[in-house]
Amino acid sequence: MSDVNNEALEQAPIKLVMNQLPAIDVPFESPLHHVELAKIAEHGESQGGVVFRELSLGLLTLRCTPNAEQATSIEAILGVALPSKPLTSVSSASGELTVMWISPDEWLLQVPQDKAFELETRFFAEVGGHYSLVNVSGGNTVFELSGEDVVKVLKKSTPIDFHDSEFPVGKVVSSVFAKSGATICRTAEQSYQLVVRRSFADYLWLWLQDASKEYGLTVTC
């Protein structure tokens, strides 16, 4: 029998919380698995104005309009309060968790992959009232773009204003990206995270290679 059996479903029939990670060692294929980034990192360009990395993280979409009680219990679980200011993000002290504002009633939570189920379980146990927390780790991937020419590549890809005065570290926006979309968070002076949908990952990887060409693109793992 599997670890997550249908008894759990019967015990907790309001919502389904499911550990989606295999208990045994099973090959994990990120959306850019076929690109073999590790090989490119080893044999590709070692210098360039743009640095690319794919991160495989646990991602969860939280939908909620938190009342005081919910806000308290959510903060207790996350260790940080949900950022209520539009277009901002917060990270836990350990850096293990980041919460990105997506919409007045939506946040994207980033945690290590194996922490997603734990987070869902705690929410289910500790947060009352109306909310939804959905594991979307498989549906998205995270591109980390950095380097001195990173903003130029971003400006080719999205109509967002990346000037320091408009886009400080920690800001997060969802926008169009090339002919797809992305949630973009500035994580450091010259570093940005792009949360993109799995099915568009290959297209966006091609796009980013093309747009970075004139500056040189380096891949790291």
Partner: peptide
């Protein structure tokens, strides 16, 4: 809910062919 090939799955017995069918859903990375 069950485990298919070691991976937690949601399996739906729905059919678009008229045959006995199982629609197996697993997290896309697997």
């Amino acid at each position: 809910q069950m485990t298919v090939a070691g991976v937690p799955a949601r399996v739906f017995r729905i059919s678009f062919t008229g045959e006995l069918s199982f629609e197996i859903n697993v997290q896309a990375n697997y």
